[in-house]
Design a protein around this nucleic acid. Sequence first.
DNA 1: GTGAAAGCGCTAACAT
DNA 2: ATGTTAGCGCTTTCAC
Lengths: 353, 353
Amino acid sequence: MTPITIKDIAREAGVSTATVSYVINGSKPVMPEKRQRVLDVISKTNYQPNRVAKSLRTKKTNIIGILAEDILEFPTVGIINGISEYIEKTDYNILLNDLRMLDSLFNQYDQIIHQKDKINNALSFLVFGAKVDAVIYVGMFNRDITGILSNINKPIIVAYSTSSDEHICSVNHDNENSATELTRHLIENGHKRIAVITGLAHTAPAQMRLKGINRAFKEANLVLDSTMIRNGDWERASGYACMKDLLEHSTRDTLPTAVLAMNDLMAIGAMDAIRDAKLKVPEDISVVGFDNRNVSNFVFPKLTTVEIDLEAIGYSAAKIATQKLGGAEGHVDSQNIIIPSKVIMRDTVARLK
Amino acid sequence: MTPITIKDIAREAGVSTATVSYVINGSKPVMPEKRQRVLDVISKTNYQPNRVAKSLRTKKTNIIGILAEDILEFPTVGIINGISEYIEKTDYNILLNDLRMLDSLFNQYDQIIHQKDKINNALSFLVFGAKVDAVIYVGMFNRDITGILSNINKPIIVAYSTSSDEHICSVNHDNENSATELTRHLIENGHKRIAVITGLAHTAPAQMRLKGINRAFKEANLVLDSTMIRNGDWERASGYACMKDLLEHSTRDTLPTAVLAMNDLMAIGAMDAIRDAKLKVPEDISVVGFDNRNVSNFVFPKLTTVEIDLEAIGYSAAKIATQKLGGAEGHVDSQNIIIPSKVIMRDTVARLK
DNA sequence: GTGAAAGCGCTAACAT
DNA sequence: ATGTTAGCGCTTTCAC
């Protein structure tokens, strides 16, 4: 019942434990016949090397730690799925640490700083206690976390957040460009009076998306009317409130023909408000969102939005992590990857004649 | 730069490594002053015991392996969140292995059997390679997986699936009772002509839910008209098709006043069909679903459904795992926990006068 | 090409 | 109450 060890294999195959180790790891040439003998014994016995012992010796656990801000929040699972997809092709494993931050800071997007200690304790446990080889930090919304994560002398990749810390790489989606494309899509469909419902105005994604929107307007020689902008807070209720306000302050003539909400939740809130005002999407007002959350395919009509390739973000983060760890050795330098997004056209945009 | 070890602490505190170990683990009494000296050095140096070395010695890694069929599927994250919630109060950690089964077997709910090898390889790696102390298997839909998981002489807890294997505990939600409650809710609102859209008819949850539905009918001295039953496949499109068929085979008089779909996806499909038929939910037909997926709160009108307490399922699974592992020692015997669910009343059920 | 043996950082007899 | 030390299962240096 006691698990079988390298010693057992060695005895059974009539070689030394060193030789068994050589064939398992291919770390030194071994005579073909001995090699075969060892291999046979291994497969006959279903021997599984003890990774714990190996780790102690090599000081590498082959474990990637995932430090997730909150696994329940929108981007996290998609990103973890991408990480898994890459990782399962390697011999690394995933140690998951969920910070469960959502409870403690609902919509207090700034307070994260105050969680610094909690985060670094977890990080430090992961690295010094569990001895993971690298960590991927998965944010729950894009923001700048420069200065939050201490330098632990092992690769840290931040996904879905940015950092300008020297020791950190990041991978994100392209807020600005995709906002431009989304806006362009509206403009191409003949919309000129476009209202915008922003996310929390001081947050990075809100600013980048606004920049992207402005660019599309400029390209088309249009100007974004500042009276058509409302500041939401990323939540559905704020989308509703902003839209209601927009509706109340519009006459038949000044009604926007389209509303761009900076995420799906607010877009759906806007759709709620439009429905309550007895107006129709997209016949009376077109609506577009951002994120392509599951729900955007379930509202009626189905929401046109931009899809963030979370899987690619995770995949890329995992790839960078393993690259930095081993193989190439050629010092992969600190990089900040941007994964492109794409507009998903569904049923909430009308073509204006 | 080389990490600090128990030896360093011992030297610094002027005691033996054994003593340091004793104070860290409380495994033997230590003189208060020495104790304090050790503690001081530890906190001054931020010493983190090397879990790898400890594991090698004690043959316990303090890691719980999660073997998830697919992290992207509906119940998985909720359950993992529950596991995390419990685990973070202990000194265990989570090693996550996502089987990513969804791709390979979309809606082929039987084929899982053929994945047996893949599953057991992962299981065996987790247990014999990574040396996790226990594993929690997270299914992506309720079914019986008796005979799938080999006995690895460590606790295995199955969440969101059942098994009658001796060595396995399981924790699930209460399909039958919640179906009864949901049906009762319809009946209490005056509905008698109730149509049912089932999930794949041969699957366990479909059968249990049907049983629960029948019980509610019986209680109310009603009979479930077999011409009002349609077999779906758990997907939205099948809900649409079933509802369309129901509508086409009904006259004004035989139209059901309510439709119970065995999950939210099919309920939403049914709502789509009702809308396409220019009928209104709930004025013309009431609709209820099952699962309380996110989307059920985003469709219009908001869907009445039954909420499965995924967090409690995960929490309970983690609790059983740690119980079986340690502490009480009093051989927690193989149990099969059932977590109650509850009906979430929203806007899709009309009260009939 | 192969084996003997040291040692990774810790715990737990065992001795004192 | 505390220290000495063997040993967990592996890799790797060094000698042959």
